[in-house]
């Protein structure tokens, strides 16, 4: 097996829980992401998705464990890992344009101001922001607009790894669709790896190569890695007709609905908690199935890495 691009090994994160004890958010989490892969992570609120992302970004030190990217252990943040924060994290004293320029100028210190500005405007236009709006301060923008500025700031820097924490959470369905398409376009044209947190199952199926499923915390685990066996390019109107779509979707819904709770809450000792790979592929079957329950053993093949 070739070395994965990003490899998370035995990652444990604990916080003081405020009552003098420690809260173990997750323990010995172990998973990997291939180069150029698009991975979404799904899990209930508070299970530790943002915490994992902070570690990947290099913003937080894990209690133990390592993250290796491109053969090098991550220590501290880097321009190679672009982050779209859950709360946008725009600098409130700068206009939308200046916020993007802030990032671009950091990435390309040798560029002239007009180059930086042109590049920034291009990415703002890509997320649907232009004209007068880009000169407004974040406080004068709607939540969705702020989120788009934050997305533009991360995309404009072409990081090797894009870390997106619910990047489309505050967007209306229409804008969300447009920006999802833009994201796929950007991702297709490059060799970028994307690690994205989302709460939206359909969005995850549309975008991801693989979906990591997390159980509820504390002692959350990345329990399963579901491969999305729907060929690209995917169009949101067409994928719902694909035979695998509902099978995968039902599996995900079932996991989040009940199994995330059932699997939650046990400390599993010292062994590595790596996810079970789930591959659901109806197209490989000879006889069409009427049963939609994807957890049914006949429909899936569990492959351990």
């Amino acid at each position: 097996m070739t070395k994965p691009f990003l490899s998370v090994e035995l990652l444990t994160q604990q916080f003081p829980d405020g009552a003098g004890d420690t809260l173990t958010v997750f323990e010995n989490a172990t998973f990997s992401v291939a180069e150029g892969e698009f991975v979404c992570i799904l899990g209930h609120s508070g299970c530790g998705k943002s915490t994992i992302m902070n570690v990947l970004a290099g913003l937080a030190e894990p209690t133990s464990g390592t993250v290796i990217m491109d053969g090098e252990e991550i220590s501290g943040p880097s321009l190679d890992r672009g982050v779209v924060f859950q709360n946008y994290s725009l600098l409130p004293w700068l206009s939308a344009l200046k916020n993007v320029m802030f990032g671009v100028a950091a990435r390309h210190p040798d560029w002239s101001k007009s180059e930086v500005q042109a590049h920034s405007e291009k990415y703002l236009a890509m997320v649907g922001l232009d004209g007068d709006a880009i000169h407004r301060k974040p406080s004068q923008l709607s939540g969705g607009m702020r989120q788009r500025v934050s997305i533009a700031r991360a995309f404009a820097n072409h990081p090797k790894l894009l870390l997106l924490d619910e990047p489309f959470g505050a967007l209306d369905a229409l804008t969300r669709g447009t920006i999802q398409d833009e994201l796929l376009k950007i991702w297709n044209g490059t060799n970028q790896t994307v690690f994205m947190i989302t709460h939206d199952i359909d969005e995850a199926i549309l975008l991801a190569d693989r979906i990591l499923l997390m159980t509820n915390g504390p002692f959350a685990r990345v329990a399963e890695a579901v491969e999305i066996t729907i060929p690209r390019p995917r169009r949101r109107e067409e994928i719902i007709d694909h035979p695998n779509y509902y099978a995968i979707r039902n599996h995900l819904v079932h996991f989040l609905g009940s199994r995330s709770k059932e699997l939650a809450g046990q400390s599993s000792g010292s062994g590595a908690n790596s996810p079970e790979t789930i591959r659901i592929d109806r197209t490989e079957k000879d006889t069409p199935e009427t049963d939609d329950d994807p957890t049914h053993q006949a429909h899936l093949r569990a492959v351990n890495e």
Binding site: A57, G58, L59, G76, P77, S78, L79, R81, G82, V83, F85, S89, L91, F102, G103, A106, R107
Partner: peptide, 8 residues
């Protein structure tokens, strides 16, 4: 953190 992720 924004500054940190931009390696300032």
């Amino acid at each position: 953190n924004v500054a940190r992720t931009h390696e300032l």
